Amino acid sequence: MTDDRVAVVAQTLTPPSSRAVQAGLKAHPRIANVIAVGSGKGGVGKSTTTVNLALALHRLGLRVGVLDADVYGPSVPLMLGLSGRPESTEDKKIIPMRALGVDTMSIGYLIEEDSPMIWRGPMATQALTQFFNDTLWDDLDVLLIDLPPGTGDIQLTLAQKIPVAGAVVVTTPQEVATLDARKALAMFEKVNIPVLGLVENMAVHVCSACGHAEHIFGQGGGQAMAARYNVPLLGSLPLDAAIREQADAGTPIVSAQPDGVISQAYVALARALVERLATRPRAQIALNTLGS
């Protein structure tokens, strides 16, 4: 390990048990915990973070899936090197596409790569609920839902119709990004989805030639926001060309360079997320079973 600040051994974790979801909703029978990954604005690396986080969770021994809920700009298929249409069963259930040990579903598998999604809000939200309910997820410990930027129709549908154990908000350190991330955080709180923590992406760039560390997008924005809203900062991730290059190549950094410092930062983030999830109340289904 070359950097004690992020070095972490990828030891397996005990799979997290089901945690409480919004009142009036029932947990998915094959998914222990749904975690929404959101941001207030685009361009903060939310999808890249989601995919690498999923691979880091899988590396820790969990069964993981990713639902790409950004129907207008799906990027999960590209990042995982997947193409083609998913198969379906006789009763019209969708078999998820699988890569690097992770189950996935995305509108990107059902449309041509360059085709725009000219859909009104109700069509987009219907696609989200259909993908969640009609995909044959493989008894997952965690399903990450990669949300589109903002606080619109899809986020509202998520709160009303999909049982979510918690949310993660991705931001960059700069003030304009944290300003929008605060809106996402406030939105989750208003719809009674607990925010498990923040992820500060592109926190620092280390020059590959000289080793000089530079905070290109500012410093301390994520930590200040976490303190202001009393939520944990789950991790700070670097700004590095390799992260983008590996995502574009369909082999995310956690898979391509599993022993590297950057991958270890994602593994540390995954571990912090699971530990935070474990502090949440258990699902009522489990409690009722114990009491029966």
Rank of each mutant, 00 (worst) to 15 (best):
E189Q: 12
L140Y: 03
A241W: 07
D103A: 04
D103M: 04
N133E: 15
I262Y: 10
A247E: 05
P74E: 07
Q22C: 04
L25V: 00
G152V: 07
P238H: 01
G250T: 04
L147H: 03
A256E: 10
S39Y: 11
Q257P: 02
P149Q: 07
H58K: 10
A278E: 13
L269F: 14
L62N: 01
T135R: 09
L55R: 01
A247C: 14
A23D: 12
N201E: 07
V51F: 09
V6D: 12
T89N: 03
T89K: 00
P86K: 05
K46W: 12
A286M: 10
K183P: 03
N201V: 02
L80Y: 07
P173F: 13
A127L: 11
A20N: 03
D114R: 02
L110W: 04
A241L: 12
A226E: 05
Q22R: 07
S88G: 10
G152Y: 06
P77W: 10
G121M: 10
L179K: 05
A268R: 13
L140S: 00
G40Y: 11
I285C: 09
A10V: 13
P86H: 06
R271M: 13
A227S: 13
G222M: 01
P163S: 09
A283Q: 07
I31K: 05
V142D: 14
L234K: 02
V34F: 15
A54M: 12
V206D: 04
G38L: 12
I107H: 00
V6K: 10
D259T: 10
N52M: 04
F217L: 06
L82N: 02
V195C: 06
L57R: 00
A32K: 14
T172P: 03
A213L: 10
I216H: 03
G220C: 02
L82F: 04
W137T: 00
R276A: 15
L136H: 03
